[in-house]
Amino acid sequence: MASHGIEVKDLFKIFGPNGEKYVEAVKNGMSKTELNEQHGHVLGLKDINISMPAGKIQVVMGLSGSGKSTLIRHINRLIEPTAGAVLYEGDDVCQMSKSELLEFRRHKTAMVFQKFALLPHRTVIENTVYGLEIQGVDKGEASKRARRWIDRVGLDGFENHYPNQLSGGMQQRVGLARALTNDADILLMDEAFSALDPLIRSDMQAVLLDIQAELQKTIVFITHDLDEALRLGDQIAILRDGEVIQQGSGQEIVLNPADGYITDFVKEVNRGRVISVGTIMADTPFDSSINIELLPDDKLEIAAKAMTEQEETRANVRDSTGKLVGSLRLKDTISAMVTPESP
C-alpha cells in the first residue's frame, strides 16, 4: 500500500466556548497570555503548517504545554479544530461527516498512547484485535493477523495475559501491536515511549525503526525528548506555546537552531550521531591511496571511529553510485562533533 503524506494547513485551536471569535485576533498578533487573561480562552495551536512526508517519520517535539498532544489529536480529529485543515489523500479530515470520520479512523489511522490505554478487561490478543473487531473483520481472520504482530513485537506466549500482568514496556508492545494490526497507513504515536525506562525506550525505538524499514508508514511521533526526536525523525517540527518555531531534518535543526530556545535544546545533543559526513566533507576527494571510504549519509561518529581504528587522519567519501564525491579530515570531523561555545 502506497503511503500518503498529511498536510496540516493554517490550523488553529483555541479552547473555550467561543474559540472562533478570537481566531482573527490571534492572527493579528494577540498573545497567548492576553487571550487567556482578558478573554478566558486558551490558545492551543497557532497557525500550524506542517507537510508530513509520506512513508516517513514526522516527529513533533515540544515540552509539556507546547500543544504537541493537541496537534496529533487533530490528525484523527479526537479534538475539533477551531480553524484550518488537515488534508490526507485530498480529503480534509476537519470537514468529514461523523460516519466518514469513523471510517477514516477505522481504516486509515491507528494510534499508540503515552499511558498505553489498553482495555484492562481484555487479554493481550483481545486487545490486539480491537481495531479489526471495530471494523467488523471476521474473528478467525482478526486473530490470525493479530498473532502475527504479537510475535513481531516479541510478545509471543503472552496472548492470554491481562495488561496488568505485564510490565510497562510489554504493555506498550501490546499498544504497538494493536495499532499495527489495524494495518492503517497513518500511525499516530503520542509520547508512545515517554513512560518507559530509558533502556526499554531505546529498545522500543529500535523495534519501531525496524518495523518502519519494512512497512514505510506515515508516522507522526510526538515526544518531549530531543534525542528520541533525532533518532526517529526523518523530519522534525519543534513546537512552543502552540506555535511551530522550527522544522526540518534533525541535522538542520542541530546545525542551525532558529533561536535561543532551540539552541539550549540542542546543546546537549550528541552531534556525532546527528550530523552526516556529507554535510561537512570537502568537495575534492583525496587521491585513491586513501583506504577509508565513507558514504555521505554516514554519521560523524562512524567516520571518526573508522579513522581512529585504522590510525588514519583522512578518508574519502564515495556516494551510493560508486563515484568519489569528497573527502574528510579527522580534525574537522572531531571539531564538528563538539558543541560550539555559545556566543
Binding site: Y130, I134, L188
Partner: peptide, 20 residues
C-alpha cells in the same frame, strides 16, 4: 484514556458502550 483509544480506533457510540 481507554475511551479515547476506542474513539481513535473508530468505535461508534454503540461499540464503545458494549466493548468498553
Amino acid at each position: 484514556d481507554v475511551l479515547e483509544a476506542a474513539d481513535a480506533f473508530g468505535a461508534s457510540p454503540h461499540q464503545k458502550l458494549w466493548t468498553v
